[in-house]
Amino acid sequence: MVPLNWYIILSAVIFMIGVAGFLIRRNLFIMLMSIELMLNAVNISLVAYSHYLQDMKGQIFVIFIITVAAAEAAIGLAIIVSLFRNKQKIHSDEIAEMRG
């Protein structure tokens, strides 16, 4: 039997890799993919809890997270397409129109 801790640590490691990718990469595609990585890490921990606590609620949440991830990917890619059409580049540190 694999202890629950192992799943949670694996999920945390993958989540932090996703955070690192989001923070340090310049390419907007890979930043968007890092978000998918983080959502998947959360899904792993939810399914692991759901199995070990013998409750279905975690897996219901996973279905909703997958729905939101699909919507987020579609909107994010649409934003990247329109950004590329206007500025011909997709680097996160060269986009400063809003002076943020």
């Binding site: 799943y7 595609f29 968007l32 993919m33 998918e36 998947n40 899904n43 399914v47 692991a48 759901s50 199995h51 897996q59 996973v62 279905i63 997958i66 991830a69 699909a70 990917a73 579609a74 890619l77």
Partner: peptide, 22 residues
């Protein structure tokens, strides 16, 4: 983790739809 349905959804939706969109 005994979640067959989610494994299928993971492959169909994530690998099949979202990554192809990317």
């Amino acid at each position: 983790l005994n979640a067959e349905f989610l494994a299928a959804v993971q492959l169909i939706l994530y690998a099949g739809a979202i990554l192809v969109l990317f």
